[in-house]
Design a protein around this nucleic acid. Structure first.
Length: 558
RNA sequence: GCGGUCGUAGCUCAAUUGGAUAGAGCAACAGGCUACGAACUUGUAGGUUGGGGGUUCAAGUCCCUCCGACCGCACCA
């Protein structure tokens, strides 16, 4: 079941059609197509159209003159008269304001749809595979990855809300030598328990989180690895380290409200032969060749900068070969549209990833989002973050400091491709500066209102009361805002733009707070009270919907 | 050197993909609670959208060119 077309949308469509007929009469040689948009400023009305600009050429008149004549005819049109409370031409634009009755009918439909309102707007959308967050299993999640997690999870939630089948994926990069380096670091800490002079690898992982893992291993296995050959202990330490780290990463994800459908081990793809099959698939199409002892994929045939190595001269497959197998596997499991969210240091990967899906026969089905860099500041000073140098600010730390709600909301506030500066001290010191509290306060304020209101009034408000008392400009503006939900979530889903959700949440809260400040809900007049309560209840529900999509709680009180 | 992303108010960010006088929050200043939660609200101030050129009715947005920041350019992951 999907959202029914709203009265306001239908009315706007009727106006557009009628206006197009009037334009045709006015400028017979034109074939006007009239679309309405929400204007930037509220004073410009509910909707506006720039059709006069395109008509101006064939009419051989200034846009403003065309708009004036069109508005003149519209004002004398009986059909439009009942739908509109205002229509005027300003600077070539035609601005309209719908009659209050249209907005009241719209709110009634929103209330009738209940929790279904805004859902399933993309019911026939292709199945999506959404990969984000993927990291080496060699250390705890850092704060920067929190941004990727927030963006990915919000996107996944919104796509599902729109009725799209989504699989969320994380690949564990456990096949390369980074994991072995981690295993050696772990072993060194293990040996240092009994021999403090045991050398630590020069390129090892110095983070303080390694030591506790070594202790776990010693508790499990005792001293049995102290005399062993590296070939014997390395796989044990590497895999134990991986499993411990991945378990921790999963726990942090869960705490952060981010759930995955699939945690794919890269090593497993190799062991199951998927990587070899991926290479074979490319070879079968004549897209590989040997040079300098290595096996290459002719990626330049698909727009990449250069050809890419699949198997090194010693026969070992590259990381890229794993990517070929992984993406082929996503298609095999039924995905039709792939989204990869990568960190800023991976934008050089876009070309080769798009080349490989094209070679797999699925051109233009992959979108790569780059979550831009996040700069951390504390007390005005740059916080340098390097896993290798042991200076890490973990996501768990930040959750501890500012809470899940603030972190989730903050990380999606700016658009994905915009760099972002995060001041830890600021987030800690003055949490009231964070807009998330503004939005949550709106929700809690309505909850308090409903607790305060007489139960009979609330009951009546929940039973689709007459909404004619809602005529204040601030009330109509709030209804208009609520009616935007379907197009907002659709826009988020189609443009990979979670930040619009955060913006929308703030806009709803602003419109509600203004409405609350200008009109009193609990009055002596029952019809008025019930209509206003109904608006408040609808607002509360939509606020909760939007906050939930963003992974933020909607509190009854604060 | 080649390529990518970006540059918007003091700070953090928007701008519905080419539309109106470039908007919000925070910070600053000035107002508003003997009625439903003041974590709110009403105002004021703050800009040559890094500089310059071009395309058209219209450019923060598209093209060219400089300046600057970050990041890629492995048979690492």
């Amino acid at each position: 079941m999907s959202t029914p077309p709203l009265a306001a949308a239908a009315a706007t469509q009727t106006v557009a059609t009628r206006l197009a007929q009037l334009a045709q009469e006015l400028v017979p040689e034109s074939t006007p197509r009239i679309t309405f948009e929400a204007p930037r400023h509220r004073e410009f009305g509910d909707f506006s159209t720039n059709c006069a600009f395109s008509l101006a050429k064939s009419a051989r008149q200034a846009p403003q003159a065309v708009a004036n004549q069109l508005v003149e005819r519209a004002k004398n049109d009986p059909e439009l008269h009942t739908l509109l409370s205002e229509i005027e031409a300003v600077a070539g634009f035609i601005n309209i304001r719908l009659a209050p009755s249209q907005w009241q009918a719209t709110l009634d439909e929103i209330i009738a749809a209940g929790k279904q309102f805004g859902r399933n707007t993309l019911a026939n959308h292709p199945r999506v595979s959404l990969e984000f967050g993927s990291a080496n299993p060699t250390g705890p999640l850092v704060v920067v990855q929190g941004r990727t997690l927030s963006i990915g999870a919000t996107l996944a939630n919104t796509l599902r809300f729109c009725g799209v089948n989504v699989t969320t994926e994380w690949i564990i990069n456990d096949a390369g030598n980074q994991l072995e380096t981690f295993g050696r670091s772990l072993y060194a800490r293990y040996r240092q328990h009994t021999d403090p002079a045991y050398p630590f690898p020069e390129d090892g992982y110095p983070g303080s989180y390694v030591e506790p893992i070594a202790q776990l291993l010693r508790a499990r296995d005792g001293a049995i690895w102290e005399q062993a050959e590296e070939s014997a202990w390395l796989p044990v330490f590497s895999l134990f380290g991986r499993d411990t780290i991945v378990a921790d990463q999963q726990a942090v994800c869960t705490r952060f409200g981010v759930e995955y459908d699939c945690w794919q081990s890269e090593r497993e793809l190799h062991e199951q032969g998927a990587v070899q099959r991926g290479i074979a698939a490319l070879t079968a199409q004549g897209l590989t060749y040997e040079a300098d002892g290595a096996l290459w994929f002719a990626a330049t045939q698909f727009g990449d900068d250069k050809d890419r190595v699949l198997a090194r001269s010693d026969g070992r497959p590259t990381y890229y070969a794993g990517d070929v197998a992984y993406h082929a596997d996503k298609y095999r499991r039924g995905a039709e549209r792939l989204i990869d969210i990568l960190g800023p240091d991976h934008h050089g990967y876009i070309g080769r990833l798009k080349a490989l899906v094209a070679a797999l026969g699925k051109p233009d089905t992959l979108e790569v989002l780059i979550a831009q860099q996040m700069t951390l500041i504390r007390n005005g000073e740059l916080v340098s973050m390097s896993k290798r140098a042991g200076q890490i600010v973990t996501l768990a730390d930040v959750i501890e400091e500012v809470g899940v709600d603030a972190a989730r909301f903050f990380f999606i506030q700016s658009s994905t491709d915009s760099p972002l500066t995060f001041d830890l001290a600021l987030a800690k010191r003055t949490t009231e500066e964070n807009p998330v509290f503004y939005v949550q306060y709106g929700h809690a304020r309505i909850a308090a209102l409903l607790r305060k209101a007489p139960v009979e009034r609330v009951a009546a408000a929940q039973a689709r009361p007459a909404l004619a008392p809602l005529t204040e400009p601030s009330e109509l503006a709030l209804i208009r805002r609520l009616a935007e939900l379907p197009e907002v979530v659709t826009g988020v889903a189609l443009h990979n733009a979670p930040h619009r959700l955060a913006k929308y949440a703030r806009d709803i809260a602003t419109d509600f707070h203004q409405c609350y400040a200008h009109t009193r809900v609990l009055t002596d007049d029952n019809p008025t009270t019930e209509a206003r309560l109904a608006l408040a209840i609808a607002t509360k529900g939509i606020l909760a919907t939007v906050l939930t999509l963003a992974g933020v709680s909607a509190p009854e009180q604060m």
